[in-house]
Amino acid sequence: MKKLFLIAGLLGFSQLFAQQNDIEITPDNSWLKAGVTAGIPVGDASDVSDFNLGLSLRGQYLFTPYIAAGVASGYNHFFGKEGVDDFGIVPVAGFLRYYFEPSGFFIGSDVGYGFLTNVDNNNGGLYVNPQVGYHNRDWNFYAFYQNTFAEHDFDIQTVGLGVTYNIRFK
């Protein structure tokens, strides 16, 4: 069922891009977002980790002044508790965002696959990362809830804060 949601989400992203016939990439509608995150594991993940740090990289295209889509990746490092090795998640996802104003609040979510690192017998699973935050022309500050529905019924969940800087194409 999780794979079905992943496929449906990816098809939805591809249809959104396909409907745009005359896409022109400009500094006003497209940019990279590079950032950092910090979180506290919850649920199953809190049994094996107390803290996580991450790096993120996103490519965004603004379809209208209010709706954006793109691709997201990065690395989230979970620091293992005593006797547990550190592990990580490498997400490969698409994302949608809705900006209420040119500067102000936004909501959005990443949907894709989270690949696990340094975990035996578990490759990863469906990755979702809903966010709510504040943005301006250069910065995004947000709160997030991240969940990777990993194999063998092990969900890796974390809540935290993130910040990204917009790198404009010239």
Rank of each mutant, 00 (worst) to 15 (best):
D155Y: 14
G12Q: 11
N52C: 05
D22A: 12
G114Q: 12
T37Y: 01
N76A: 09
S109H: 02
F78N: 00
N52T: 00
V128L: 15
R137M: 09
Y99R: 02
V71Q: 05
I156Y: 10
T26A: 01
G94Y: 01
V119I: 15
A143G: 10
E82G: 13
M1R: 12
T37L: 05
Q20I: 13
G74L: 03
D155C: 09
S46G: 10
R137C: 07
Y165F: 13
K170E: 15
T64F: 08
A68V: 00
F95M: 07
D47Y: 14
G88T: 04
A68R: 02
V84L: 04
A150T: 14
P41I: 04
L96C: 05
S46Y: 12
N76P: 03
Q146A: 15
A34C: 10
F141S: 02
D155I: 14
L57W: 02
F79K: 04
N140P: 04
A34I: 13
I167C: 15
Y75R: 04
P102C: 06
E101C: 14
G39K: 05
F95C: 05
G12I: 07
G160H: 01
G88S: 03
D110W: 04
I89M: 09
V111R: 00
D110Q: 03
N129G: 07
F144C: 09
E82K: 14
K81S: 04
N29V: 03
A150C: 05
S56K: 13
I67Y: 11
F87Q: 02
K81L: 02
E151P: 01
H77Y: 14
Y75K: 08
V111C: 07
F100R: 08
I107H: 14
G104M: 02
A150D: 10
L6R: 11
K2D: 11
Q19W: 05
A150M: 08
L10R: 04
T37Q: 11
V128W: 10
A143K: 06
D47K: 14
G12H: 04
H135V: 12
G12E: 09
V48Y: 12
E24G: 08
V132K: 04
D138M: 14
G125P: 09
I89T: 07
N147P: 12
S56I: 11
A143R: 00
F154H: 09
Y66W: 13
L126I: 07
P102F: 05
T117H: 13
G70F: 03
N140I: 04
G39D: 01
K33A: 09
Q157K: 15
Q60H: 00
G112Y: 10
D110M: 09
S56M: 12
L116R: 12
Q15Y: 12
G160R: 00
P130T: 14
D110C: 03
G59K: 01
F144Y: 11
F13M: 11
A68W: 05
G94N: 00
L55F: 13
K81I: 08
S30I: 01
I40P: 14
G80I: 07
I89G: 09
G94I: 00
G162M: 06
F5Q: 05
A68G: 06
A34W: 08
S103P: 04
L116F: 06
Q60G: 05
V92S: 00
G74C: 04
A69N: 07
V36Y: 10
N118M: 09
I107T: 15
N118Y: 10
L161C: 02
T158Y: 13
G162V: 00
